[in-house]
Design a protein around this nucleic acid. Structure first.
Lengths: 149, 149
DNA sequence: GACATGGATGTGATGTTATAACATCGCGCT
DNA sequence: AGCGCGATGTTATAACATCACATCCATGTC
């Protein structure tokens, strides 16, 4: 499957998800998601803004932040807090909580699903009286490519 | 043990650790650590700056960022990426990797040590070809106080 | 058709977080 | 004294994010 194909498929899924939930998947929102899908390592808000501006000169920070708010709110994209970057969500429905492995060298983000780890985590939290809130956990981990070098 | 006492003890430990490693624990660095110790929920860099400025009017952003860099580099404080806040390290030597539970409601930070969770995490990462880099993992979890309300 | 409503977007300014770049100080060393 | 070097001072700016208010436009209602 070429990157292009999977990106198109993801966009289609997003379309369907919005339709099903009565959400307005407007051109700006689509375009932002598409750009995120095309950039596997994620994009910073202002890089995204620059890309959008090339097509739509009137774009300003709120233009992209609003789209990003929409996408993250509806789980079509994630914000990597560590780097202030945004990535498209690659897991279809990502019903289960995700681990995000962020490579501190190159910035690559890998979305990992590991039920047993998450369970262990939740048990540990519960023992401390806490309750997991945001099921998106970021972890700094050297990626295989950077490990090699 | 009163907060004051433990804060003083932590400062003393930091002093000793710096002496042992030949690091300059300068007045600014001490003061910043002390302020972090006095504010359990952590401080933002610019709030810290305001506090420092009250005592030392010439202080500027680099003044505090340098002190914070020093403290985090030498594991005397941690940066909570999620909130861009800084907290003093409360674990004596924190030889083992830590989980930081960050309450998204109130911002409280709890440092948790759970070997088994970390092991599970490392196993999972290794299976994906990654290697844990920064042993400080942040997790959003509602704290007991906020859970109650 | 007129018109209210509410979400989406446009627009300009501002707030917040962090670093760059270069000067200076002060201390230990020879 | 003169040097080297880490810490600090100082000015400016980069990078990330939000506020506030105006406007547009699709939809429902009378």
């Amino acid at each position: 499957m070429s990157p292009n194909t999977s990106s198109a498929a993801a966009l289609k899924r997003a379309h369907a998800a919005c339709a099903a939930r009565g959400l307005a998947f407007t051109p700006i929102r689509q375009r932002v998601l598409q750009l995120l899908l095309e950039h596997e390592k994620g994009l910073k808000a202002y890089d995204l803004l620059a890309l959008i501006k090339a097509e739509q000169p009137g774009a300003t920070p709120p233009t992209v932040y609003r789209a990003l708010d929409f996408l993250t709110e509806h789980h079509l994209a994630h914000k990597i807090e560590r780097n202030a970057t945004f990535v498209a969500c690659t897991q279809a429905g990502h019903a289960t909580p995700s681990l995000f492995l962020v490579c501190p060298q190159c910035g690559a983000v890998t979305e990992l699903q590991d039920k047993s780890v998450m369970q262990a985590l939740c048990r540990s939290l519960a023992a401390a009286g806490h309750r997991l809130d945001d099921p998106e956990v970021e972890i700094a981990a050297i990626c295989p490519d950077c490990r090699a070098s």
